[in-house]
């Protein structure tokens, strides 16, 4: 995807073929497009600036006032929420990643050629369902359907620490939330992995097959090693989505402000985004500042995850000889 337009342009300019006095239309157009590029930087700076500005009172007010007028001391209030955010997102990843890689492999290497693209679109349709609808589905369909599984898991696999405790009677647990989140991040991980799998060098694949490898051995030897960095970055981008997902979690999870590793009980940690969505309409004064400050924490977490993903992609682009 390398463009040679700027290169051709600069060589023409150095050869002196372009009139020395730039045309007025050129200058206006270049100014406009450069300006909107800079506008994006300004918008992003504004996002950060306004969030920090509104979050500032929550960070600087002394804990006693915050306990009286807000939700309590800031860090001890936000850390359990941050824990819940990460915990639910990790659960979603654990569920989604094997399935997503399986689907991507199915579409890229197993499905009949004619069907492959259509099947890919089918999975992409999952991305077309708005998160609030996933929330309703989670509450009305998935949570009741999973109650027997909650009971079964706590009864027979209860020795495993995560599955211990009294099972929830409503099914609105971190477990169910993670499943909903997993379904929601499935399309993005799948489509990114599919792209990478399709880019695996054809000659390597054919060489492996020619040496007598079965299809799975070919995938393990030629496709997966090539795609490893791409898979990791797809996972990180999926993680970023799961961390920021709001409405589905707000609807499905019945959470409190606590740290709890058991995933099947009625006591669940809440997430930052869901907590903002549920508390914001009734919030006032310092509470609004505190909620915005928690949004800032979420922003920083997702930013770190996304930048890590981009860094992995960039590093791969440098040593990969495929492009």
């Amino acid at each position: 995807m390398s463009s040679t337009a700027p290169a051709a342009e600069s060589s023409a300019a150095s050869a002196g073929l372009v009139p020395t006095k730039p045309r007025i239309g050129d200058r206006v157009f270049q100014g406009l497009s450069t300006g909107s590029g800079i506008a994006i930087l300004v918008i992003l700076a504004l996002v950060a600036a306004f969030l920090v500005l509104r979050a500032f009172p929550a960070l600087t007010t002394d804990p006693a006032t915050l306990a009286a007028q807000g939700y309590g001391e800031f860090w001890s209030w936000v850390l359990p929420l941050a824990f819940g955010t990460v915990w639910a997102a990790i659960g979603a990843l654990v569920l989604a990643v094997p399935v997503a890689i399986g689907i991507a492999l199915f579409i890229s290497h197993y499905a009949p050629r004619r069907l492959a693209q259509g099947l890919g679109y089918t999975i992409d349709l999952l991305a077309a369902v708005p998160s609030v609808v996933f929330g309703l589905w989670g509450i009305f369909v998935l949570a009741p359907a999973l109650i027997p599984l909650h009971v079964w898991l706590t009864t027979y696999v209860g020795w495993f620490p995560l599955f211990s405790g009294q099972p929830s009677g409503t099914g609105r647990t971190i477990f169910t939330t993670s499943i909903v989140l997993a379904v929601m991040i499935l399309p993005i991980i799948t489509s990114l992995c599919r792209e990478v799998f399709l880019q695996a060098p054809n000659l390597h694949e054919e060489a492996a097959l020619a040496l007598g490898a079965t299809r799975w051995e070919m995938i393990r030897m030629a496709v997966l090693p090539f795609a490893r960095a791409g898979i990791v970055s797809a996972i990180m981008l999926g993680l970023g989505r799961a961390l920021g997902e709001t409405m589905a979690v707000a609807l499905v999870l019945s959470g409190q402000n606590r740290v709890d590793f058991q995933v099947l009980t009625a006591e669940n940690p809440n997430t930052i985004a869901a907590n903002i969505a549920l508390s914001f309409p009734e919030a006032y004064g310092l509470r609004i500042n505190q909620l915005i400050a928690s949004g800032l924490v979420l922003f920083v977490i997702t930013l770190a995850v996304n930048m890590l993903a981009r860094w992995i992609v960039a590093r791969r682009a440098q040593y990969s000889g495929a492009n």
Partner: peptide
């Protein structure tokens, strides 16, 4: 790229704050 990853609720908080 960074902007692509902004959680939607954070965008809402930004507009509200602005």
């Amino acid at each position: 790229d960074v902007m692509t990853g902004i959680p939607s609720i954070v965008a809402g908080l930004f507009a509200y704050a602005l």
